[in-house]
Design a protein around this nucleic acid. Structure first.
Lengths: 343, 343
DNA sequence: TATATTTATGCAATCGTTTTCGTAAACAAC
DNA sequence: GTTGTTTACGAAAACGATTGCATAAATATA
């Protein structure tokens, strides 16, 4: 049978659709008895409101779009977890999409999300994305956006990030305190914003401890496993680092894999290995891996909270309160070290 | 500025909304010149169709609902990956929700999804779910459903599962071929459908090799880590198994953790450890873990394909072709063993 | 030239809800 | 008993896109 609509209920009960609508949403101007009748009947015929119609009418969907490079990545799935929880408790629903690191797909996805009229967007940019015209072309009134993790450099957008400077600084400092001076750093491509932060944290730790910065210990890698493998091979062969720091979830696994291979082959001594990683089995690896853990869940829930707050603020502004445009927010979350490997 | 609508374009170009609509969707009955004018103008004013309105009118959303216990679980995120890819290429979008193993939340979520008028639903049941009235109460015409992984026993529903009987059978057989006879099995609670399958596979492998079935080597665990920990402790202390097989992703990690602890403490010899797991670092663990790998990505894409095929079949039926009700489908996917540990 | 047929477009209803604006009926105030 | 006020509800117009039906203009046929 087709769905039962508000109109059906109205006819059945001999009243107007508007009355049923009001009764169902508990309007104060409906008589208690009428409300009870409507509710009872609605229950009986298993009425379910049609959110599509409601969204059209109200010009809002109570849906949020989430765009990430890859869902099956511990970090992102934890972030999504956080987003979903916050959204759920605030009565929003979440549509999730992945770009597979493709700019084209990101562009398409954002457009589709806009066409679906999601109320807001939470996005972590693809590896290929260099500018955000494809996102910012939508008016802020039409689509609120919060960036997280992989954010644009742009000053005028809201974002939630991790303090990578601090994270790398801490990891490098730990290395140095444990007597290591030749510390290899594997990180993302050089022109990305976040790469610069990481490099700066690394450099600062060295500087603070009077160690010379050696360009040859730095490797820039993309998303292909072989890039990490090659980097490790080269480092081991030509520079024999006394410790490794890797700066992304995938990168960490890929380099660790090769590192372990080199270790087993006897090409490198057992040295500490630090990774920006959220894998939940870091302590079960052998040799264990030290982790710079990003508060992924929290990043998600904070970003979602920020977005929803913004949406509800936007709503309020229509009530005629004078509008003070809120400044762009940048939330910076702290990483923490998990030491599984001790020298 | 508010969105530009089809009507806006119509007024601007001095034509009717219907003409614009037809031009935009490339109807054959629109003059080439008119179409070009409309398209050019639409482009210019950055027109985006409003999917909400379209969905209301067409009575379909081209959205699929996905409900899983937990997103941040390698298995499920891989499944989602598969779903999303298939859906994307077929022009559907995906809304993802998690139940956190709660029946109440599952019920709420399914209802919300229905109210949103998703065209179909892909669901893996929560740990607390024992019957599916909360799902099947929606008429099949209104909401097509495909179950995957954690499916109901019901014969009348479509599902995609893994051949757990075979998976466990193979793992147990491998153990036996490697000279192990006292094989511990850690699995899900006893009354669940899938548990029975797993037990049967285990029992059959023993039987085929003339080994007695020992009830004491079987442990049933829920989702709490301590349950796995306790199970391992007890097994090690009282039965000294010559091998372990665990039957779920979480369970595998939790038991392996305790197993490793016991191993380090010298309470158990180094014996093979088999897990139903999709973690991508199984080979990097020490001792390495043998995996019964489930084709998670494929499970997702198959389920999505099944669902979309069904939806499009349902559409066709309105064209008046005589309707043959398709029988419920059960697709059974093969697991495969990944041997990282050799005796 | 009158009629039939295409071709290209407009009109208006529809999808299911919400909401603004009325307005009868009931009640209160004087 | 006339004039306000509530109270409770109905009528109708949105929201934006699609589509069946009607029709004017252009072309073809007789």
């Amino acid at each position: 049978m087709a769905d039962v609509t508000i109109k059906d209920i109205a006819t059945a009960l001999g009243m107007a659709a508007s009355t049923v609508s009001r009764a169902l949403r508990g309007s104060y101007e409906i008589n208690e008895k009428t409300r009870a009748r409507v509710e009872e009947y609605a229950q009986k015929v298993n009425y379910r409101r049609n959110t599509v119609a409601q969204s059209l009418r109200e010009k809002r969907t109570r849906a949020l779009g989430v765009v990430v490079p890859e869902i099956s990545n511990n970090f992102f799935s934890e972030v999504i977890n956080g987003i979903e929880d916050e959204a759920f408790t605030r009565g929003y629903q979440v549509m999730i999409f992945q770009t597979h690191e493709s700019f084209e797909r990101e562009k398409q996805t954002v457009q589709q999300l806009y066409e679906r009229r999601v109320d807001g967007l939470l996005i972590s940019l693809s590896g290929q994305t260099t500018d955000i015209e494809h996102i910012s072309r939508y008016k802020k009134d039409d689509l609120s956006v919060i960036y997280f993790d992989r954010v644009p450099e742009d000053e005028n957008v809201d974002k939630v990030v991790v303090d990578s400077f601090e994270g790398v600084y801490q990891a490098a400092t730990w290395m140095i305190q444990n007597g290591k001076r030749k510390i290899a750093l594997l990180t993302s491509p050089p022109d990305i914003y976040i790469t610069k932060k990481r490099l700066a944290g690394y450099a600062k730790a060295l500087e603070d401890n009077g160690i010379d910065y050696d360009e040859k210990l730095i490797k820039y890698c993309g998303f292909e496993p072989w890039e990490a493998h090659d980097a490790i091979k080269d480092l081991v062969k030509n520079h024999q680092p006394e410790g490794f720091i890797t700066c992304a979830d995938r990168l960490t696994i890929d380099s660790y894999e090769e590192f372990k291979k080199q270790l087993t082959a006897g090409n490198t001594p057992l040295v500490p290995f630090f990774g920006f990683t959220n894998i939940n089995v870091a302590h079960l690896l052998d040799p264990p891996i030290n982790a710079i853990v990003q508060p992924a869940y929290e990043m998600g829930s904070r970003a979602a909270k920020l977005l929803i707050d913004k949406l509800e603020y936007n709503d309020r502004k229509h009530l005629g309160n004078r509008r003070t445009v809120p400044l762009p927010v940048e939330e910076k979350l702290k990483t923490h070290l998990v030491i599984n490997f001790t020298t």
